[in-house]
């Protein structure tokens, strides 16, 4: 394109417009997006007294005490473990549930696949307002409130429809030859799924693992509703309680915030393309 406009430049009175204004605006938007995280990092390194003198600027005398204090006062030794259990349980369950269902729809000639697909589209778009109230009282009567398993089952139900749809579109595109060969050799469908399909489709599984893992780690609303016991709370709900108790101590709050987002930041920067493609596909689900 550049070569073309240079070649025709003599004849055209209009020059190729400069890209500089775009870059200026894009940098401003990037500052808008990231600036608040910089403030979070700055304030996590300040004493409460320094925040009073210098609310949002860079720390003049950085201190690291906020991190151990926030860790112990925020009960992170407990809540991190709870969040890890919720996240791992959700990821494993969603991969199993969605992997089996996607395989059945893509490969086993499931009768009525169109109806199931439509149901999954609808189910993944249903608002929580529609099922929350009876679900809560059903979970109470099954003694599943105040248990991590009860919350994990809810996450399975919420994240699986989308994961199934994404994985199915991935499996449909895979060549069938290998599984037919395995079938002729007398392998069961479960063996085919584990030994043939899984090794071929791991990028699809990685994407649904990232999306559902992120969802479980960040989830606030169902955790708030279904877990009251402090010893079972994940990082999100315990952070919010902590933050309201220490709302004037922005140093401690910021350090706690950094602790929560650090695993996500690390994983996101390592696997940004897969995150972005998986999540934008999620936005286009409904």
């Amino acid at each position: 394109m550049g070569g073309l406009s240079a070649a025709t430049g003599g004849r055209r009175s209009q020059r190729e417009p400069s890209k500089a204004p775009y870059y200026v605006l894009l940098v401003l938007l990037a500052i808008f997006a990231i600036g608040p995280f910089v403030v979070l990092l700055f304030n996590s390194l300040k004493t409460n007294a320094e925040i009073g003198r210098n609310p949002l600027g860079p720390p003049l005398s950085p201190v690291f005490e906020n991190f151990p204090t926030a860790w112990s006062q925020g009960g992170f030794a407990t809540t991190m473990v709870n969040s890890a259990i919720l996240t791992v349980g959700t990821v494993v369950g969603v991969c199993v549930i969605a992997g089996m269902a996607a395989y059945a729809m893509a490969r086993l000639d499931l009768p009525g696949t169109d109806v199931v697909l439509l149901y999954l589209f609808v189910a993944s778009a249903l608002p929580f307002q529609l099922f929350l109230v009876p679900l809560f009282f059903l979970w109470s009567s099954l003694s599943l409130t105040n248990t991590l398993l009860g919350l994990i089952i809810i996450y399975w139900a919420i994240f699986s429809p989308f994961a199934t749809l994404l994985l199915r579109s991935y499996l449909v595109a895979l060549p069938r030859g290998f599984e037919d060969a395995a079938r002729v050799d007398g392998a069961t469908e479960l063996q085919i799924l584990l030994r043939v399909i899984l090794p071929l489709s791991w990028p699809g599984f990685l994407t649904i693992a990232l999306v559902s893992g992120l969802g479980a780690w960040n989830e606030y609303f169902f955790a708030l509703t279904f877990i009251q016991d402090n010893s079972l709370k994940p990082v999100t709900t315990s952070f919010n309680a902590f933050q309201s108790n220490f709302s004037r101590d922005w140093g401690l709050t910021s350090a706690a915030g950094i602790i929560i987002i650090l695993p996500v930041v690390a994983l996101f920067l390592a696997l940004q393309r897969r995150f972005i493609s998986g999540l934008t596909a999620g936005g286009l689900k409904g």
């Binding site: 997006a33 992120l214 960040n218 606030y220 952070f239 915030g257 987002i261 995150f275």
Partner: peptide
């Protein structure tokens, strides 16, 4: 950079 706020926990 634009995408980062979307992936962070709402409470933070």
């Amino acid at each position: 950079l634009f995408f980062i706020p979307y992936v962070m926990a709402s409470v933070v």
